[in-house]
Simulated scan of single mutants.
Amino acid sequence: MLVTRDYCVTMARYNAWQNKQLRDAFEALSDAELRKERKAFFGSIFKTANHILWADRMWMYRLGIGDAPEGDHLSLTPTPAVWAGERYKTDARLIAWAEKLDTVDLKGDVVWRSVMADRDFTHPFDLCVSALFNHQTHHRGQIHAMLTAAGATAPVTDLLFMPEEGPWL
């Protein structure tokens, strides 16, 4: 797998840009609309957003970028305002990590125990980095669909439309 520093920087910036748009979209919806059951995999827009943040932090922990998340993946943050602040800090940490990477940092294996799967895993570091960014994109697509169904303006998600210059956060 070819994962480079440039790939990581681009994807970390893309992630932050996407989450900035989600923060803006969430501000336009009521708390009730964000928490409304929508028959999605994690139920609501807000639960899905919490899941992404929780999983980002879990992957970052496994990759040596931060602490493991505490609490349940669907209720990591209690309010959209708290989520927005935590999302911003997490995205900034991920960008800072990516910008400091050297090629050698992307080599080796990541070993962890999954409580949910009740087993140990070992995978190449670069594959785990790809899993982090892929997971974000997958579930943000679900949020996009829920925002559209709620009548809200959903973010522009095409990577090719990402601004060449920041701010991404």
Results as ranks from 00 to 15, higher is better:
His51Tyr: 09
Gly66Ala: 04
Ala28Gly: 04
Asp56Cys: 00
His51Glu: 01
Lys47Glu: 15
Thr79Pro: 06
Ile52Val: 12
Ala68Val: 03
Phe125Asp: 01
Ala40Asn: 10
Met58Pro: 10
Ala96Pro: 00
His139Asp: 10
Asp102Leu: 09
Pro124Phe: 02
Tyr88Gly: 05
Phe46Ala: 05
Cys128Phe: 02
Asp72Gly: 08
Leu132Thr: 03
Ala84Gly: 06
Trp83Pro: 11
Asp105Gly: 03
Asp126Phe: 08
Phe26Gly: 06
Leu63His: 04
Leu63Cys: 06
Phe42Leu: 07
Ser44Tyr: 01
Glu70Cys: 05
Asp91Ile: 03
Leu76His: 13
Ala68Arg: 13
Lys47Ala: 14
Leu132Gln: 05
Pro80Thr: 06
His139Arg: 10
Leu106Val: 05
His144Asp: 15
Leu94Glu: 06
Arg113Met: 10
Ile52Ala: 00
Met116Leu: 12
Asp67Lys: 15
Leu132Asn: 01
Thr79Asn: 11
Leu53Tyr: 03
Leu76Val: 11
Gly108Met: 08
Ala68Tyr: 11
Asn134Asp: 12
Asn50Lys: 09
Asp72Ile: 01
Glu37Lys: 14
Ala131Tyr: 12
Pro80Trp: 07
Cys128Leu: 14
Pro124Thr: 05
Trp97Thr: 03
Leu106Tyr: 05
Lys89Tyr: 04
Thr103Ala: 09
Lys89Trp: 01
His51Gln: 08
Thr137Ile: 04
